[in-house]
Amino acid sequence: MNSTAKVDALVSGSKSKTGEVAIMIKDMNKWFGSFHALRDINLKVYAGERIVICGPSGSGKSTLIRCINRLEVHQKGTIVVEGTELTSDLKNIDKIRSEVGMCFQHFNLFPHLTTLENCMLAPVWVRRVPKKEARDTAMHFLEKVKIPEQAMKYPGQLSGGQQQRVAIARSLCMRPRIMLFDEPTSALDPEMIKEVLDTMIELAEDGMTMLCVTHEMGFARKVADRVIFMDEGQIVEQNEPEEFFSNPKSDRTQLFLSQILGH
C-alpha cells in the first residue's frame, strides 16, 4: 500500500492542485456482515484532482465511493469530506451529501418527474433556492450536457446516454465541490458511451474534483491525475495513468490490465 508521502509526491507532479484536501480517508474498514469489504483504506484526494478507480468486480471500488457520501456506513477509521467528518450525525451527512454529487450506473433518475423537475428538485427542497433561479440553473446545466430540448420529457422517454447526462446535470445543479461516478457507462449501449464520457471530460476540464469508478481505460488515460487499482477490498496500486498502464508494478495489476486490454 502506498504511503501518504508517496501520494503527495504523485499529486504534486500533476497539473491541478491547490494543496487543499477535498477528501481524507484514514484506516477505513467496512464489513458487510462478516465479509470484510474494505480493508485499511488510506486515500487523500486534493481539490481539483481526477481519480479513476478500477479493479475486478467485487473488489470494493463502488463500496469505497459510496462510503464517501455515506450510502454505505464504514465501521472503522475516519472519512473527512471538505473538512466535515462523516459520523452518524444526520446533519453532517445531509450537509456532505449536498456538497458531493453522485452519478449511478443505472442513472436513478426520478421517473415521475420531468428532466427539468429532476434537476430542480434538490436545489429547491434542500438548498431552498427560489423556483425561478433553480429553473435557470437547471436549464444552464442541461445546456452544458447538451440536452436542453429534452427538459420537458420524462426520463422514460430518453435514451440511456441522455438519461445519464441528465443525471450528471441533476448533480451539478447542487453546485457540488466533488463528483462521484459509479460505473456511469457500464449500463449504456456502446454508441452512447462516448456522449457521456465527453460530458465527463468537459467537467474534468472545468476543474471539478472527480472520483470515477470505471472500466473506460481510454478515459482514465486522458483525464485522470491518478489511477487506483483495487482488489479484495484493498488499494493494490496507484500511479499516474501513463506509468500505471505502461509499467504496472504488482502482478495483480498486470494480470487485470492484460485481461481488460487483451481482447
Binding site: M102, F104, N108, M174
Partner: peptide, 22 residues
C-alpha cells in the same frame, strides 16, 4: 428500485422529503 432511495439520499434530501417527493 433501491436506486431511487439512494439517488434521493445522494442529493441530500432528508427522510421525510425523500418519502414525500420521491
Amino acid at each position: 428500485p433501491r436506486g431511487q432511495y439512494e439517488a434521493a439520499d445522494a442529493l441530500g434530501l432528508d427522510y421525510w422529503k425523500s418519502i414525500r417527493l420521491i
